[in-house]
Simulated assay, not measured.
Amino acid sequence: MHKKNSENNHFGIVSNFSELVNSKFHDTMNAICWERNLDGDFQEVVSKLQLKDNITEVYPEDLLALQLSERGHVAREIILNDLQMLSDFGALPSLNLLKNYERDEEFDFISTDVYSYHVDSSPVATSTFLCTYYGAASDILANDQALQKILIPEIREKLKELHIGSEDEFESFLIENSFDLHYQPKPDAQSVNLGSGHLWRLAVDHPGQEVLPCIHRAPKENNGEYRLLLIC
């Protein structure tokens, strides 16, 4: 985990899974990290998986079918255990082998893909869980270091030009197209990289949420390198 500034109070660090899922978000803290230094050869696991699309979901049976070295076996057991823990908790974890996500290039003034800083939204009380086992890792931002894009005057004016309908329907238009979920970092913003092997829990915008949702983005992939990512 790479911290670009020394006074991060928007995330907490815990030492086990129980603390990760039971700790409460509060005040400005809307991300929690189970900090881990994982053994095992995750690169070997990635090298033996088959990429079918730009994003390929990997199932436990796919992992179990791999012929691995001792260190590759250790890595596989860690992944399987993480999937089981999250499933037992009631989450729906997905393990993805990633070449890249689809880019949103429809407009030159606003992007709504996952490479743009954004928050997750849900109609039910939940959290986003993330762990990058191999490859580039995501970034998060403190909420006071970013601006909601729809509140930036020049972007808002261009969105109004796109909107076909009455002024009263404009806010609904922003929500329906997920424009309201995306953020622009301030010029002096200091991001935190989530690093490899750590299991993160991020606050989601939902009814009853007592903190602001966590602003995060997918990384630009390293050239010629796949990512192995657990997400739910």
Rank of each mutant, 00 (worst) to 15 (best):
K99N: 14
S178K: 11
H73V: 03
L202R: 01
A146D: 09
Y101M: 11
V14Y: 03
K52V: 07
P185E: 14
L92W: 02
E157H: 08
L92N: 13
E167T: 03
L97H: 08
V211A: 13
D108R: 06
Y133N: 11
V21W: 03
S172H: 13
N81W: 03
G195I: 00
F129K: 02
L141V: 08
N9F: 02
D41Y: 06
E102N: 13
E77T: 09
H182Y: 14
A137M: 02
R201L: 05
D53Y: 10
S116F: 04
H2Y: 04
D27F: 05
E61P: 04
A31F: 00
A91H: 04
L130T: 00
R76N: 13
S15G: 02
N37I: 10
P187F: 05
I231H: 09
D41C: 01
F173G: 11
L162F: 08
N22H: 12
D139I: 01
L147S: 15
N100M: 02
Q67T: 15
E102M: 11
E154M: 03
P185K: 06
D144M: 07
H163K: 11
E57Q: 12
F109K: 13
G165T: 02
C232K: 00
Y59M: 05
D53G: 06
E57H: 10
G165D: 10
Q190M: 13
R227K: 06
L174Q: 14
L147A: 15
N222E: 14
K24A: 06
E57A: 10
K99R: 15
R71D: 11
G40N: 12
L174G: 14
S166T: 14
D62W: 09
A218R: 01
L86T: 01
S116L: 03
P60A: 08
R227D: 02
V14C: 06
P213R: 00
D168R: 08
S127M: 00
A136K: 12
S94M: 12
A136H: 04
D62Q: 08
S116G: 12
G224M: 11
P207D: 05
L228T: 09
I175A: 15
K149E: 15
L38M: 14
D188Q: 13
T126A: 03
F179G: 12
L63S: 13
Q67H: 14
S111G: 10
I215M: 15
H163S: 10
F107T: 09
L80Q: 13
L229W: 03
A136I: 02
E105M: 09
G135T: 07
S15F: 03
A189H: 11
C214R: 03
P93G: 11
L83G: 12
Q67N: 15
L86G: 02
R71E: 15
E7A: 12
W200A: 04
P187R: 08
E167C: 02
E221P: 01
W34N: 13
T126E: 07
N96H: 15
P207W: 08
K186W: 01
E35N: 05
E171A: 06
F109P: 14
P153T: 05
S178G: 04
T28R: 13
R217F: 00
K186C: 13
C33W: 00
C131F: 01
L64H: 11
K3N: 14
G90Q: 11
V204A: 00
